[in-house]
Computed example of a mutant assay.
Amino acid sequence: MARKKKTQRPARRAPHQWLLGGLGIALLLLIVGGLGWWLRSQNAAYAAFQAAVQRGQPALQRVESFPDEGRAHLEPGERATYRTDPPTSGPHSPEWVNPGFYTTEQPPERLVHSLEHGHIVIYYDDPGPEAIQTLRTWAGMFTGPWDGVVVVPKRGLGRAVILTAWTRMLRLEPFDPDAAAAFIDAFRGRGPEHPVR
């Protein structure tokens, strides 16, 4: 008598495998949705910035220009004396301050090196919560190595905000986001070390 062959049934997935697969799909959808939301918010912030740039163009007539004080590198720890306060050019530290929003003061010698890179350095003290939020947003938008925004505190400014670029300065009291956006757009990425715009 011939033996009857057993047919193999396909292995059934254990319930925990189905659960893990479902969680993986849910996580993927969450990531994709979050990325889409983030991109939309970034585009909206950039569009708002560009609109402010257009409105702020007349303020560029108030930008002060200063003589170039040189680009010499100091020895580590060496201090410099600048003709402008805050400085807009001159001897500087071999180190720089990366783009971002800071809550502690940074050495002027490092900030001048940031200007040489093409960054905009913005000084604030107590301009109000709306101005702080705007400055935080811009510091997060412009983070390139040669065209970023550095926002740092400077005691004694009160409600004023001062924007600097290499040999350029704009004092705003009170803070005017349209004028500030126009300044950032006009001078960001145009430092003498490696201009990218």
Rank of each mutant, 00 (worst) to 15 (best):
K4C: 06
Q8M: 10
R9G: 09
P10K: 00
A14D: 08
P15S: 15
H16S: 14
H16A: 14
W18V: 09
L19F: 11
L23N: 06
L28V: 13
I31A: 14
I31F: 15
G34E: 12
L39T: 12
S41E: 15
Y46K: 06
A47M: 03
G56H: 03
Q57W: 06
A59L: 05
S65T: 14
S65E: 11
F66S: 10
E69T: 04
L74K: 00
E75T: 00
S93F: 03
S93T: 08
P94L: 04
E95I: 05
E95L: 14
N98Y: 03
G100Q: 08
F101N: 03
P107F: 04
P108T: 03
R110Y: 02
R110E: 13
L115N: 05
E116Y: 12
G118T: 08
G118R: 08
I120Y: 07
V121W: 07
I122R: 00
P129E: 13
T137S: 15
T143W: 10
G148S: 12
G148L: 04
V149E: 14
V151S: 06
K154Q: 15
G156K: 02
G156V: 11
V161Q: 06
W166T: 06
T167M: 11
T167Q: 14
D176E: 12
F183K: 04
A186P: 15
F187S: 04
P195R: 08
P195H: 08
V196Y: 03
